[in-house]
């Protein structure tokens, strides 16, 4: 009888540990069990992808519809090539949609926002979004702003 309670407590302890791992996986690191399988891949070239990482989210109208799978350098076009996995239930993205890298808040993380286009053709697996808008680089912005002020003074 005493060994039985011992085994039970130890069993509970091990379960608690595994449950903790599960919580860390699902609740803390936001690992979703269904990332693979029901997605299709869309590509986009950006002049500047700074701040974007794999697993950054891809949104449309503020709703997450996929995530960045991989970012590589396209050595022929000297641009960043972003591979996105879009949930396959979102299968009506017009071919001329725009992908832009946007920032959550002033200093927040970068993600890809897709604005809808007007084409009748829709994006399929392996297609590319041609119309892109690069990441906003704060230093460039400030530089341009300063330049403007200086030239106004002239």
């Amino acid at each position: 009888m005493r060994t039985r309670t011992l085994e039970l407590t130890v069993g509970l302890f091990i379960l608690a540990g595994l449950l903790a791992l599960l919580i860390l996986a699902l609740r803390v690191s936001g690992l979703t069990l269904s990332t693979n399988g029901d997605t299709y891949t869309v590509y986009a070239h950006f002049d500047n992808v700074s701040g974007l990482t794999s697993r950054s989210k891809v949104t449309m109208a503020g709703v997450t519809i996929g995530q960045v799978k991989r970012i590589t350098f396209d050595k022929n076009r000297y641009t960043g090539l972003v591979e996105m996995a879009i949930n396959s239930d979102v299968d009506t993205l017009p071919a001329d949609s725009t992908a832009s890298i946007v920032t959550a808040g002033l200093l927040g993380e970068k993600y890809i926002g897709i604005s809808v286009g007007g084409d009748d053709l829709v994006l399929g697996d392996g297609d590319e979004i041609v119309d892109t808008q690069s990441a906003l680089v704060l230093e460039e912005l400030i530089g341009r702003f300063l330049l403007n002020t200086v030239s106004k003074d002239d």
Binding site: L21, L24, A25, R27, V28, S29, G30, R55, K57, E109
Partner: peptide
């Protein structure tokens, strides 16, 4: 609180490495 956590914590790089 939770969303920021989920966006920045990666299962492989953080949880598993910690483990």
């Amino acid at each position: 609180y939770w969303a920021n956590m989920q966006n920045s914590v990666q299962f492989g790089a953080d949880v598993l490495n910690g483990l």
